[in-house]
């Protein structure tokens, strides 16, 4: 994952050099990130999502996308209308295909200037910035602009936007588990739906590997174990029973069980195959 590995959100943005050199920005940034620090780091979004986002309060409050209050966002797109007429800042627009947004990069250090030199109109960049409303217009105060070298990052970015959106929208949750069985019914409904069904599956199954699908299975197992019938059993519930009840292959369950056990959410009882959930 490009952005995750390269930008550990909290450490990267909690006190960069650029903040201290602009007092007014620094104040706002730190107050809003402090609120969200535990919550979200750098969130991948499209310009369209930003356009449709709402302001949670006044001008100084965070911007809410998909129910999540955001401060720092990551975008990929083409740079256009680069304006270097001012000494202390570079302005440009970013076009990500869903829309364009105004961006501003303060140029304080020679590093900033060097980074902005490599960025020209028509360059594809990965951009990280602070989302802000100024005089009623949303804009990005950019703190990193990097030309894209491997263009798979472009595909990746949009997939990541979809992934983040799916993770944070409740309506999507139920769909992902029963996905495989649903695809048959969907595909019989016509051509346009067939497209959807076939596209869904590969992505969903890949999500199962990297955490999202598993989260659902986590919840399913926990919910099952929390049922009074199961909670009442002193020896806990056998792995096979869980697999049978949830209609999920045993090998799939096993991995999730181990991680739940490691998280301290469930524990093994009479042997290593019987489990109970930890009552809080």
């Amino acid at each position: 994952m490009y952005s995750n590995s390269q930008f550990e959100p909290n450490s990267a943005f909690s006190g960069g050099g650029f903040m201290s050199s602009q007092p007014s920005q620094a104040y706002e940034t730190s107050s809003s990130t402090a609120k969200n620090r535990d919550f979200q780091g750098l969130v991948p979004v499209t310009v369209k999502q930003i356009t449709e986002s709402a302001q949670s309060g006044g001008e100084k409050s965070g911007i809410v996308i998909n129910g999540v209050e955001l401060t720092n966002v990551s975008l990929v797109g083409l740079v256009c209308d680069k304006d270097v007429s001012k000494v202390t800042e570079v302005r440009f627009s970013l076009d990500d295909g869903t829309g364009t947004i105004d961006c501003k990069r303060w140029v304080n250090e020679s590093f900033d200037a060097r980074e902005m030199e490599s960025v020209r109109d028509g360059t594809y960049v990965r951009l990280n910035g602070h989302l802000k409303t100024f005089q009623g217009k949303k804009q990005l105060l950019v703190f990193s602009v990097r030309p894209i070298m491997d263009f798979n990052e472009v595909t990746f970015h949009y997939i990541e936007c979809i992934h983040f959106y799916s993770q944070n929208s409740d309506s999507q949750f139920g769909q992902q588990v029963g996905d495989v069985t649903q695809s048959h019914t969907v595909s019989s409904q016509g051509v346009s739906n067939t497209n959807q069904a076939t596209t869904l599956n590969p992505v969903m199954s890949s999500q199962n590997n990297d955490g999202n699908g598993r989260k659902n299975l986590d919840d399913m197992i926990l919910d099952y174990l929390k049922q009074p019938v199961c909670a009442a059993r002193e020896q806990g519930v056998h792995l096979d029973d869980i697999a049978q009840q949830l209609k999920v292959p045993k090998n799939k369950i096993e991995d999730v069980i181990r991680s739940l056990e490691a998280d301290g959410q469930i524990y093994s009882t009479i042997d290593e195959y019987h489990f109970k959930h930890v009552e809080l």
Binding site: K48, Q49, T155, Y158, I159, N195, Q196, T199, V203
Partner: peptide, 14 residues
């Protein structure tokens, strides 16, 4: 796959 997603279920993000 991205093209299909961007015109299907997640069209509204694009």
């Amino acid at each position: 796959e991205l093209c299909k997603l961007a015109n299907g279920e997640f069209k509204h993000l694009f």
